[in-house]
Design a binder for these strands. Structure first.
Lengths: 199, 199
DNA sequence: GACTTAATTGAGCGATCATTCAAGAAAGGG
DNA sequence: CCCTTTCTTGAATGATCGCTCAATTAAGTC
């Protein structure tokens, strides 16, 4: 067993994620990545193949992370609706995060690369579909728990919810006060988890 | 009075808008613009100063256009709420547009350039604020027309509505069927203009 | 039909882009 | 301590980036 790699892959991916999330795909140069990863071009290419390859791994890492966070808040809670509410509350202070990291990286990627890198855009889309499915599962669980009317449409609710979160996170990107973001979050939480929805 | 310009400014801006909207700012090269505008680099720089200058003019043109469309649908209608409803219905077939033009160019710009070109991003933000104001005016008009409760919060409603439209347009970017986009639009229209909101 | 004046041209600028690869460095096995 | 194997290095690649400017073209004036 000869010389092992000096860098830690997950750390490199995490640092690359920060740069790509902030600057986007096209505006991130390899020089930016060399600096952020403390790696020379040769090492980056040996490890990840190309800029697109690294981005792809970052995207997958970001999506896994997002899905895990979602799952933790949503499914580990005895009440599905309460879990959803807690997830939404975790978005309430978006207005205080770094501006460039308020919007979902999957959304930013889907938008930025729709024309120029359709494959990467489609991958982001696929991860968003996975998140929609998770929302759908939550609403189905809520129906079984009688927290939602029997005739509710979990798929449609999931899409409504996802669109609402898209909108919230885009709105949080605007230069408004964090309070406005908080109010908007509250309204969305009430809309999707209000108690009087129970049959 | 010597030689007049051969190109028509508004046409050039319209063509540049198409390219920038599709590809984004960073992925659009001057070569792309030369092709789209049928102009040589010298002419482009004489007319617009720089790539950023041209983009800025495109953004302003796009915003004026959006505001005009909004104003026409919203304010020219005797009933404010009915006008809003018609505006929302004009978004119902987003799912059938060119993928890259489903999302609002102001939103795409704000996201893509937040870090790398903060001035252009801030300009997009300012135009979005103008649109929010227009929504706010509509809700105030609706209150005066008794189409909305007296104690409604027009500013908050405007922000909710804008966020909902953000979300809808992002969702329409996903590879779902146009029908799903239509259903989502319908739901938003009902949420913001339902008759039983009348005091 | 010169003359004036501005618009257009396109070769070319230095900088930077993503990427490659031969050479050197480092760690484990013998 | 040498050998093997892999990782790391960084100079160099050709392409493309946004942009400039001297030369050319063309329209209106007299």
């Amino acid at each position: 067993m000869p010389r092992p790699a000096k860098f830690i892959r997950t750390e490199a991916v995490a640092r690359a994620q920060e740069v790509f999330w902030q600057r986007g795909y096209h505006a991130t140069s390899l020089k930016d990545l060399e600096t952020a990863l403390s790696m020379r071009p040769g090492s980056i290419y040996a490890a990840f193949g190309s800029k697109a390859g690294l981005f792809d791994e970052v995207l997958s890492h970001y999506a896994e992370q997002s899905l895990a966070m979602l799952r933790q808040k949503l499914l580990n809670h005895p009440s599905a609706m309460q879990g959803l509410r807690e997830y939404l509350y975790s978005l309430a202070n978006l207005g205080e995060r770094e501006p460039a990291e308020r919007a979902c990286m999957l959304v930013k990627t889907m938008l930025e690369l729709a024309t120029t890198e359709p494959q990467l855009s489609a991958r982001a889309d696929a991860y968003l579909a996975a998140m929609e499915n998770l929302f759908c599962e939550v609403f189905m669980a809520a129906m079984q728990q009688n927290e939602l009317e029997k005739d509710a449409d979990p798929r449609f609710l999931a899409q409504q919810l996802q669109a609402a979160i898209f909108g919230l996170r885009i709105f949080s990107q605007r230069q408004t006060s964090p309070l406005r973001v908080r109010l908007l979050t509250e309204q969305i939480a009430n809309q999707f988890t209000r108690v009087d929805k129970i049959a």
